[in-house]
Structure formats: structure tokens, C-alpha cells
Design a protein around this nucleic acid. Structure first.
Length: 220
DNA sequence: ATCCCGAGGG
DNA sequence: CCCTCTGGAT
């Protein structure tokens, strides 16, 4: 198997053709909406988030509306997404800080974004890339973590360490799309449980393909 | 390391 | 029943 630097270019070329420049599956119409939707998406499918956000954003159009929301009511409104107590605290807390410290506007930089309660680098990276078209890092979620490990791009477990490894390997021009490409490939052919290596366009470049489907080690 | 938490798949 | 879904705070 070639080393990481030799494989990463081919991996990005293949994936960028397989999943031509779409973005997150989350529905949103503003930086604030993608922030809330991303908080809701923790340990939950995007589809489930999309089912509740239209009504939510109609009822709470601005950060001030969420800041003054009744926590008990909001908890019930976001209940289907799971972790509803934590997510309610995060949404109301982040909204208050946006109103009080950032003039009602979602910050457009990493440092200010991760100062919001319930917002760490993953969520901040999603907001920056999908709303501001900026990439200060690479969003590492469950899909990026799983595929990075399977593809041998990182041996780390901690998302922040994986992100550091990826930032060394992935050309900066591709940072913005890298999360999207791996998420979609994860959903399409490389899910957590039963990766479908035989139909995977990356099997020739993937150290784990032979692990799941013995025989692929001949395809180097 | 553990907790938060619902919903769907196998 | 166990695992997983675009995590983050303690």
C-alpha cells in the first residue's frame, strides 16, 4: 500500500467526482439556522433534524426568539432529536451569547464560535464552511473519524487529533469539501456496520478493504 | 471515562 | 437485544 501522501490526492480526486459539490443535507437559510441545525444533529440523522427545523425556525425566527424561549417548551419541540435537555441548554445559551456579545450575528471565525456553549470545533467548522465558505479546519464527525481511520489517514481516536492529522495531509483548497466528501461516501458505501468494499471506488487505496473482504490485498 | 437521549436497523 | 446516527461538557 502506498503511503498517505501518495494516496490522498487520488482519494480526493475520486470522491470529488463521485459526490460533485453538494453540501450538507441539513436544511437552513442563514448562519444562525445552520448553527442550530448542527447542534441538533449530534448523534441524530440529518433527516430527523430536517423534520423538525421548518416549524422550529418559523416559531423562533431570530436568536432573540430562542434566547427568550421557555426551556421546557423547547425541550419538547426538539425531543425527537435526542439529548434534548443538553441541546436546549446549548441552543438557548448560544442564542443569548450571540445577542449579548455578538450583536445578534453568528460569529464568522473559529475562536468566537467555539466560545458559544455547546459549540466545539466540529460544529464551528460546519458553520464556517457551509455558511461563510471559510475553512479554518476540517470538521471531524463520526463519519470523518471512521473513514479517516479505515483509509489509514489517522490512527488517532480523538477528533481534534484526527483533525490535526488531516490538516497536515489534505491540501488546504480541499478542506472545505473534505468533510462533505467523506460523510457522503460513508453514507453511500462505507457505513459503520457493513462497509461495501467490493463496490467501493477507493478499495485500491484503502488498507482496510482487505480486512473486511479478504482478497482485496491483491488489488494494490 | 462517562453522561446525555430518541429513533431506526439488523 | 446491541449498534449507530455529521458531539460536547463534566
Amino acid at each position: 500500500m502506498k503511503d498517505v501522501q501518495e494516496r490522498i490526492g487520488e482519494i480526493i480526486t475520486i470522491l470529488s467526482q463521485a459526490y460533485p459539490r453538494s453540501r450538507t443535507a441539513l436544511r437552513f437559510e442563514s448562519p444562525f439556522q445552520i448553527l442550530v441545525a448542527t447542534i441538533l444533529s449530534a448523534q441524530c440523522t440529518d433527516e430527523k433534524v430536517n423534520q423538525i427545523t421548518p416549524a422550529l425556525f418559523r416559531k423562533y425566527p431570530t436568536p432573540s426568539d430562542f434566547a427568550s424561549a421557555d426551556p421546557k417548551v423547547l425541550e419538547q419541540e426538539i425531543r425527537p432529536t435526542g439529548f434534548f435537555r443538553n441541546k436546549t441548554k446549548s441552543i438557548i445559551g448560544a442564542s443569548k451569547k450571540i445577542v449579548e456579545d455578538f450583536g445578534g450575528k453568528v460569529p464568522d471565525n473559529m475562536e468566537d464560535l467555539i466560545s458559544l456553549p455547546g459549540v466545539a470545533r466540529k460544529t464551528a467548522n460546519i458553520v464556517l464552511s457551509s455558511s461563510f465558505k471559510k475553512a479554518e479546519g476540517i470538521a471531524v464527525d463520526t463519519h470523518v473519524r471512521r473513514l479517516s481511520q479505515r483509509l489509514g489517514l489517522s490512527k488517532e481516536q480523538d477528533p481534534d487529533k484526527i483533525e490535526r492529522d488531516l490538516m497536515e495531509i489534505v491540501p488546504k483548497d480541499d478542506w472545505l469539501d473534505f468533510n462533505y466528501m467523506l460523510v457522503n461516501h460513508g453514507r453511500a458505501v462505507c457505513p459503520s456496520r457493513k462497509p461495501r468494499c467490493p463496490e467501493c471506488q477507493l478499495k485500491r487505496l484503502c488498507p482496510s478493504a482487505s480486512e473486511f473482504y479478504p482478497g482485496n490485498e491483491l488489488n494494490l
